[in-house]
Design a protein around this nucleic acid. Structure first.
Lengths: 141, 141
DNA sequence: CTCAAAAGCAACCGTTTCTGTTACGCCGGA
DNA sequence: TCCGGCGTAACAGAAACGGTTGCTTTTGAG
């Protein structure tokens, strides 16, 4: 599996937006964000586009355009970001249906679905405990 | 990210091995396991090969060979399986180093590493709560 | 009204990972 | 010695991701 750095890119962008805001720059362009993350501006626009659809950032177009936070950095958790940028489940069931003539093949899927949900919920709960504000505070400390 | 079904395949194989054992068949070939999982025997051998390296199953070669559980099904947790088949981290940092001239770029990596570790540990702890025996019991109930 | 800056978006590419498949070497009990 | 079955290499197809280019759309500024 290709490990997923989408959360990293998005969290970095939001932390940078918040730091810029504290310094009096309410809006940053995708180029400016990309310079900090060290990636392409299109990658940033794609990522922030996901966040915009979730209401976490605002995008202004036209001349003098750019991105700004959609709500307070203390009200954006890592879980919010994760849900906005990564719809993929952490664990997948069988790619092709198991053999239904075998008791295990017949009954395993709902069981694993339940257990995978529990693990995923634990993962999400941990992400929900930190916000963009927390991340930035730990960076600056 | 391509969702990972390795845990599913391995857990299915182990549950099937345990059910067969209860029915008096201590050893199953990769073909027999593959028939239940509905995949190729090589996939099963690769998966059970990982589990063997972790001590979760035993593989016998030669005539009349096959796989059997390495220890009691109640002593094999989903976490054990996960660790054996999937060394990949759930979340990755930046692919290329962020801009170190930016305060965020300079400080974000250890912060995210910590937070990702917490989320991953929560995920693992949830997987540790269920065993192959639990899975099989829930299937048969 | 025009211009230009910047987001939005589509089409690629290269890389990686996963599943699947074939083929073959090697082991070991009968 | 035979031969069933594991171990493993090689390869193919699909999917996802990061990256890149180029074009369209929006919109404030002059």
């Amino acid at each position: 599996m290709t490990a997923n750095s989408k959360l990293t890119i998005a969290a970095h962008a939001l932390a940078w937006l918040e730091l810029a805001r504290r310094r009096g720059r309410e809006v940053l362009t995708s180029e400016e964000v990309a310079a900090s993350v060290n990636t392409n501006a299109v990658i940033v626009r794609r990522s922030l586009g996901d966040l915009q659809r979730a209401g976490l950032v605002r995008a202004r177009r036209g001349n003098g355009a750019g991105f700004s936070l959609g709500r307070s950095a203390a009200e954006i958790s890592l879980l919010d970001i994760w849900l906005a940028v990564s719809a993929e489940p952490l664990l997948a069931l069988h790619r092709s249906e198991p053999n239904l003539e075998c008791p295990v093949g017949r009954g395993i899927r709902p069981v694993l679905t339940d257990l995978y949900d529990e693990a995923t919920n634990a993962f999400r709960a941990a992400l929900a405990r930190s916000t963009v504000d927390d991340v930035l505070e730990r960076i600056l400390r």
